[in-house]
Amino acid sequence: MTRVSPYALLVLANLLWGGNFVIGRAIAESLPPYTLSFLRWCTALLVFLPFAWPNVRKEWPIVRKHMPTVIFMALTGVAGFNTLLYIALHYTTSINASLVNSSTPIVICILSFFMLRERLNKNQTVGIILSLAGVLFILSKGSLATLFAFSFNIGDLLVIAALICWSIYSVLVKRYTGILPGYSTFLICIIIGIGILFPFFIYEAFITHVPITWSFGSLLTVLYTGIFASIVAFISWNSAVSQVGPGKAGIFLNLIPVFASVFAILFIDERLTWYQAAGGIFVVLGVYISTRITSPSGSGPLPLEQSAGANRS
């Protein structure tokens, strides 16, 4: 059986996550964020449990040994990222959220420096500056007055909190590749994530009585996010990151705003503004520069195959 390319897996994961941004925005008035996130992962658990449970029974001692790390992965990658994103999409557009989120590779580079002791090279430093400038341009809508007043959209700030969670999760995936078993760890993360989300779901559904509108669309949303944006996308991402490393995989996150923008324009009538386009160009350019790996002699970039291997551990 031919092995699927990790780069094809990265494209698939980001295609599905691009759709997640748009569907999260489209359903914002029908399904409140904690409810959507909780039901999403409950659906994912039901689908994934039969496939992963035999592995858990054999690999539980390994997972239990690293339980603090697994809990932190569940908090950041399962409960934190998605819930913060769904809350953010109540206040900002899916295009804006996906563009801000595209700075994730820069955050991954910074966290890899502190958590994995990976040194930042000149390209990464330049890329970080360009990407941060692009994010600030998007957040301020191209207005210096907004920038100096620091009166940013709360939704965009929540997206930043979400991408920090996702960056931590991605670095942990790379750090524990070969130590933690993939399927078993992911299943336990889902279970723990559901446990973290449960009290928030109860509070939202039964105490604050946030209205929920059930329809064919909301049902499809739960199924899409639970199966495709969770199981298929996460497994594809984790498999690819373990092969090429978080830094190299991170550049593919630039596909999320591309897919999200196309879907948003086609399906929910959003419009791409000039400041989003300008800021997005800076973000993408910064990420591109930061992920270019120069040859040992400094003569230029390595070929794709070599640069991918340089990130393996």
Rank of each mutant, 00 (worst) to 15 (best):
I265M: 15
I129N: 02
Y183L: 13
L180P: 02
V262W: 05
L219G: 05
V63C: 12
S218K: 01
L116D: 05
F48L: 10
V210E: 10
I128W: 07
T146V: 15
I108F: 06
A278N: 07
G24N: 06
G298A: 12
P6E: 04
F114T: 14
I154A: 15
L10S: 03
P61F: 13
N55W: 07
T185R: 07
A145T: 15
F216L: 07
T185N: 05
Y86S: 02
T146C: 11
M115C: 06
K174T: 08
L304G: 07
S112V: 05
S290W: 04
I188V: 15
L220I: 05
S313R: 13
F200D: 01
G155R: 12
A26T: 01
I95T: 03
I128T: 11
A260L: 10
S37P: 00
W53F: 15
L255E: 02
I62K: 10
I71T: 12
T146W: 07
P199W: 12
Y86K: 01
M115D: 06
L302Y: 14
Y275S: 14
L158V: 04
V56W: 11
P50H: 07
I87T: 07
K65N: 13
F263T: 03
S131F: 07
A162C: 08
P32V: 05
N121L: 02
L31T: 01
V222W: 02
N238A: 08
S242N: 11
A88E: 11
K248T: 09
L45N: 01
I293C: 07
A264P: 08
I110H: 08
A277D: 05
L36D: 00
F252P: 01
A149P: 11
V135G: 12
G217C: 03
G250Y: 02
P32Q: 03
F267C: 06
S102G: 08
L223R: 02
M1N: 12
S37K: 00
S242W: 07
A26E: 08
F259C: 00
F114M: 08
I87F: 15
I251M: 11
S143E: 15
I256E: 04
G77K: 05
P54F: 11
L75P: 07
Y275N: 12
V244N: 04
V22Y: 00
D156E: 15
L16S: 03
N311R: 09
T273F: 09
P33R: 03
F200R: 01
F113M: 08
I87L: 09
N238I: 13
